[in-house]
Design a protein around this nucleic acid. Structure first.
Length: 260
DNA sequence: ATGGCAGGCCCAGCCTGA
């Protein structure tokens, strides 16, 4: 089965391109981020027409996440536990039941955190602590579990074309990467890094300054796998060609293949 | 050397993003 993550940067302005990619790639499960619309405005019909069930956690103008699945979706929860006052739509989780058994999928849009230091960076770090606490509980279930999304974390200098320009950025600061490592140390396998072919592979290129043409990218979209999911990991790929399509998102899809 | 984009939104400049 194919599980993907993709920050679409507005699903309403990207729906034609999303349909094109879904028809081409035919993923079984997709985590989408930055919908930038409320639930009612999500282009549900166009997605369902391709055979997907849809779980949406939308928000006006900002954020917004969804899970699409060709398999039945059960046990949908929205919002990241740990702060009832947090109104930002950045987390959705569901269980997809395949013929071979269930896989739990969490889709996330981790806060950008700039400028750092400041309240936005504090929010990012607090959000990462909540994610670590939640993930710890999920891993204790010892299920196939995939935590996928736009992490807004550049894990290492190999994950940026020009790491030197990111040293004071919230995506790359030592505290950010330390929290990232603590998340992984809970027992996750990072899919692309597990292939040993991650260096120089990017998932985001800024719209500005000809970043795409210069391949001036960063790798910030990740899929983390529980041991039970990692045992089934067959392949990982980045669909970078989507960045060259007309009116693209600034992110491209990342896809993993799990056995059965 | 500098700046360079895109999307949403009370539709026009401002906020946000990374």
């Amino acid at each position: 089965m194919l599980i993907a993550t993709w920050n679409v940067n507005s699903i309403k302005s990207r729906i034609d391109l999303a349909v094109r990619w879904l028809e081409e790639a035919r993923p079984d499960v997709v985590c989408l981020q930055e919908l930038k619309c409320v639930d009612e405005a999500f282009p549900r019909e166009a997605i369902e027409a391709l055979g997907y069930n849809v779980a949406v956690h939308g928000q006006k103008t900002y954020n917004g996440v969804a899970i699409l699945s060709r398999f039945p979706i059960e046990d949908v929860t929205v919002g990241l536990p740990g702060d009832d006052a947090d109104e930002q739509a950045r987390f959705v989780e569901a269980v997809v039941s395949t013929g071979e058994g269930a896989v739990r999928v969490g889709g996330l849009y981790l806060p950008n955190g700039n400028p750092a230091p400041g309240p936005k960076y504090d929010y990012k770090l607090a959000w990462m602590e909540r994610l670590i606490a939640h993930a710890r509980g999920r891993l204790a279930l010892e299920e196939p579990f995939v935590l996928a999304g736009d992490y807004n974390v550049i894990p290492a200098k190999q994950d940026a074309k020009r790491p030197e320009v990111w040293v004071k950025d919230a995506l790359f600061l030592p505290q950010t990467r330390a929290a990232w490592r603590r998340l992984l140390a809970l027992g996750f396998t990072e899919a692309l890094r597990a292939t040993d072919e991650a260096d120089g592979v990017y998932t985001f290129w800024d719209y500005q300054a000809g970043a795409w043409q210069k391949n001036d990218g960063i790798r910030i979209d990740h899929l983390l796998l529980s041991p039970q999911a990692a045992d089934r990991l067959l392949a990982v790929r980045v669909d970078r060609h989507v960045r060259s399509w007309e009116r693209p998102s600034d992110h491209v899809p990342v896809v993993i293949e799990l056995a059965a």
